[in-house]
Computed example of a mutant assay.
Amino acid sequence: MSRPCTSTSGGFVEAQGAGVVVLMSASAAIAYGAPIYGIVGMSGTATDKQGRSVPAPGKGILSSARESPRVTRMLDVSYRRQQFTAQKAALDQWKSAELQAIAGDNDDDLDMATHEIEATYKRQYQALQDTWGSEFWKRNTDISPLRGSLAAWGLTADDIGLASFHGTSTKANDKNESSVLNTQLKHLGRTPGHVVPAVCQKWLTGHSKAAAALFMLNGVLQSLRSGLVPGNRNADNIAAELKQYDYTVFLSKTIQTTGIKAALIKSFGFGQVGGELLVIHSDYVLAALTQEQLEAYNRQLRKRSLKADRYWQDVLIGKHPFVQIKHRPPFTEQQEESVYLDPLARVHFDPISNSYKF
């Protein structure tokens, strides 16, 4: 019944449910062997005309493409790598000199000074990664958030291979959403004629009354992993007003691509509140690992996968519920205050009691 982007669209079809994802830093996911389905390259919201819940489309999410473009070397991955390497060498030299300077101290002073130097080095190293890696575009009016987030991974607007539309099957939303995406891509200099497939997932799922955008995110993650762009089976007659846009194509059948590097997700709510996500293929973070790091990650991943399969089996046979509720903290009342005041306090898992303890 839901017919997004067609001449016969007549309003959204209500559904139930919500999507769920687990968001982690790349370093944590790699250390724990968690499966990486995609990378959140950018997230943004806009409340351009936010007010009472009037279902009128807004264009505020266009601001993710905002820039006053000038030629800048910061978009060049090779240039940023060169600068990072040079500054890291200087930081390494500083650390070596500091450690040599305290070499003659007594054991207690040496341990304290070494800890301080290591902590400072770690903070400075992280700042270098941010400056030349993922955050170089921030507070820079020459580079839009969308362009900068793509460039952090060596990508451009031409590398966006899928646009997941909010696609409510209302005439106002479908036209506005197509217009916003078209304007963004044109402003970012996407090659004319290089269209982006628009996926309107609500033709199948309806419009959930909970976290609808997470329905879409899980769908996009599946597309990134498989290279499949799902068609909107109800799109048998595309609305005439949508045919004016140069950068979108509305598919009625699923197609197999050679791979999708990046995807854009839009979520437009009542009261003209908009949201947007740029999702990058997981290969881009795995490609940054050394061979040794990648092999170690894959070992952890296989181990976690086996544990997850066993957990599911135990749930299905009734050995334990899927969600196991914690009934008490992992520390005693006598330990509570000291735990809160110690920044290095950690718990460990006790397999015998199947609980965490301090």
Rank of each mutant, 00 (worst) to 15 (best):
T191I: 11
H187C: 06
L217G: 05
P197G: 04
L217R: 03
H194G: 02
E177T: 05
N182Q: 11
G193W: 12
L162K: 03
K209W: 01
P197R: 01
M216S: 02
E177F: 01
G193F: 01
L214N: 07
I160S: 02
G206F: 12
A198N: 13
T168I: 01
G193T: 03
P197I: 11
L204H: 05
S164D: 04
S223K: 05
L188G: 08
G219C: 02
R190A: 14
R190S: 07
Q184H: 12
G189R: 08
H207E: 09
K202Q: 01
S164V: 12
C200V: 07
M216N: 09
C200I: 12
A163F: 15
L181C: 06
L185S: 00
P197A: 09
A211F: 09
H187P: 05
G206Q: 11
G193Y: 05
G167K: 00
S223I: 02
A213G: 06
L217D: 10
H207L: 03
A157G: 08
H166K: 04
T205H: 09
T191P: 01
S223N: 04
N182C: 01
G189Q: 08
R225Y: 01
V199H: 10
S208H: 15
L185E: 01
Q184L: 05
A212C: 02
S164G: 09
N182W: 02
G193C: 00
H194W: 13
L204A: 13
A213R: 14
K171I: 15
L221T: 02
T170P: 03
G189I: 02
M216C: 08
S223G: 03
H207C: 15
G219P: 07
K171D: 13
G167P: 00
V180Y: 10
V199G: 00
V180I: 10
G206D: 02
L214I: 12
L224K: 06
W203C: 09
G161S: 14
D174Q: 15
A213D: 04
A210N: 12
S179F: 15
A163I: 13
S178T: 13
W203I: 04
N218Y: 09
